[in-house]
Nucleic acid binder design. Sequence first.
DNA 1: GTTAGCACTCTCATCATTAGAGTGCTAACT
DNA 2: AGTTAGCACTCTAATGATGAGAGTGCTAAC
Lengths: 369, 369
Amino acid sequence: MVGERMNRDERNAPSRSVLDLTERQRSVLRAVVEDYVLNAVPVGSQALVDRYGLAVSSATVRSAMAELEALGLLSHPHTSAGRVPSDLGYRIYVESLMREAALDRADQLMIRHQFSQVQLTSNEWLRLAASILATSTRSAAVVTPARARRARFGHVQLVELADQARLAVLVLGDGNVVQRRLQRGSVEKATAGETTGQAELDVAAATLNAELAGLSAPQVRRKLPKLTPLAAHVGEVLAQMLEESDSIAVEEVFTDGIVNVLEQPEFAGGAKLRGVLEVLQRSDFLEQLVPVLSRRGGVTVIIGHENVNDAMHEVSLVFAPYGTSDSALGLLGVLGPTRMPYPRAIPTVRYLSTLMNELITNHPTENHD
Amino acid sequence: MVGERMNRDERNAPSRSVLDLTERQRSVLRAVVEDYVLNAVPVGSQALVDRYGLAVSSATVRSAMAELEALGLLSHPHTSAGRVPSDLGYRIYVESLMREAALDRADQLMIRHQFSQVQLTSNEWLRLAASILATSTRSAAVVTPARARRARFGHVQLVELADQARLAVLVLGDGNVVQRRLQRGSVEKATAGETTGQAELDVAAATLNAELAGLSAPQVRRKLPKLTPLAAHVGEVLAQMLEESDSIAVEEVFTDGIVNVLEQPEFAGGAKLRGVLEVLQRSDFLEQLVPVLSRRGGVTVIIGHENVNDAMHEVSLVFAPYGTSDSALGLLGVLGPTRMPYPRAIPTVRYLSTLMNELITNHPTENHD
DNA sequence: GTTAGCACTCTCATCATTAGAGTGCTAACT
DNA sequence: AGTTAGCACTCTAATGATGAGAGTGCTAAC
């Protein structure tokens, strides 16, 4: 009776008791997590004693497990099954049990080497980063381009194409490039029907480059009335492009290794992942993550139900921002089952984030040609 | 005995006999394919009579099925199971049995409407096309950008970024834009250490634009010796960029709806799809498809083992080229199990290919703002 | 505090059995 | 000659019984 009451008390305030686990509880929890991550099978007391050098008997481990379960760190699929870590269990593990090592020197070199073999375009970098993350952690990887939080005008070029269409190519202050076709006829409409060829476009571009350098979308808008009709018309389009660049465009997010997750037993069939992928691709999910990650800095781990988004309750995210917070900011990380190899994923994400940092600020990659 | 011998003869020359199926055989094959596509369950003679208005008994259907099996159009998972179409069976179905309708007027309008709501950037178009294909056919969709088979120089712009890095933005003859960072220090090396600012870059760009307009990569290379060191250095990079644009870059291929395929019973678990996705993403698979598709024109269907690539033996492709063959050429289509809703997929792919054609040549999309 | 011992619970693999779906063949029918 | 009913036969898939094994929780002894 008394024992029962105590259990209940502990359950009501788990976060308190969790801080002062006994050394035994700590090593049992660690072993359970690591074994379950490896084998995806609920782990029992005997197996634990066998596989990890716990110098105690299975009965002792059992009682420790029972305590951990009362604390909400482990759970029980059914009476005669082994234990499985709860989200909170993983959290404790990540927070204070995991032996996290920096990435092997060899791994680091291998990754750097791969980057050195690739062309100096940021898209290639992103794709490669996603690919490396995915294969190295056996999870799904997500990498967004580094974008300034507030896009600024850099340089514009207006080109007349063969078929009378016009193209505006806008280089942003952070070096990213966006393009947009100008609607057929709209230019003529803006200039009251005057013919506009490449010459006129060049003049307009020169004006815009002189007037708008370094400005953000609203500032560009304020300048427009002072310009010629043609320049003003194009300027409006440019302002729109700047605005759109302030948010992450879905079509520029690189993902890789989704199959890795699909092959995990907990996602067999694929139906469970559908919601996850939809959230990832269609919504502003990643965008909401940017401020959170950049505020915290370094690697952020979000485990199962810790994620506010319902669809993400059965997966964990290990993400980090990259880029300088005052100019360009991007996101990279991995997504996998809560049963994720955190000690591998975290250093990998961390290393790749610092590497991408290097690449976008100074790009010391050698080009062998 | 005689009957047995006849069967064997027919088996040796199936492609011959296949052309003159009896009307009964034709409608049985059609019904088997359509039922199997719908239910993913081997279909028996009785079920066929029940569900489709065949004015004959199940015994008659059985004998027709046996004939079709002898011809290699149907197969038998085991003795007491129903029939399943073979790759060849699907081929006959697609070739001459399927009642293929053009896309509903309503569907067409719906699709057009979606395109009209999207910004005038080709990336958005591609993403949208993939999304529409995927949801409308419940298969995986693949869309590549339209690229000239032989990229030509259009217009170059050289920009000095804040952090001393330089960016080359190259507009191709077909209106596509590619960019590349210039390696730090390489410019200085090329000009023997002279300082080069935006002014020098502008001069070089003007030279290049004047000298290289309309040229292909090898032609550009031939011009280089006549240029200043700076322009020649940049020109070499531009030539490389032109060469790379001649092939489809993996990072620009848009896919969507992979989950659709994963939810199909034949791919439960995801392991089977791994090879397929790898082929799709890492190799030059799509690129090899371009000439094939553009030669044939219109929609091409590749069913199971018809695909030369081993990994693709359990899937079907329904693809079409788009773009004008002499300027820019792209690819779009769907990938799914051989048990694919061809009568839906084919018109959808066809319609989207003509629509993308329209969009890239003249882009009549209205912009509501 | 730790452990051996033990009763108990639950899963999972195995096996036999059975119902049912579907076939192929033959003989009768039109 | 083509079609059909009838029927024996085959194979799958579902069902249920059984037993081994894994794992637990508890208790009493160390």
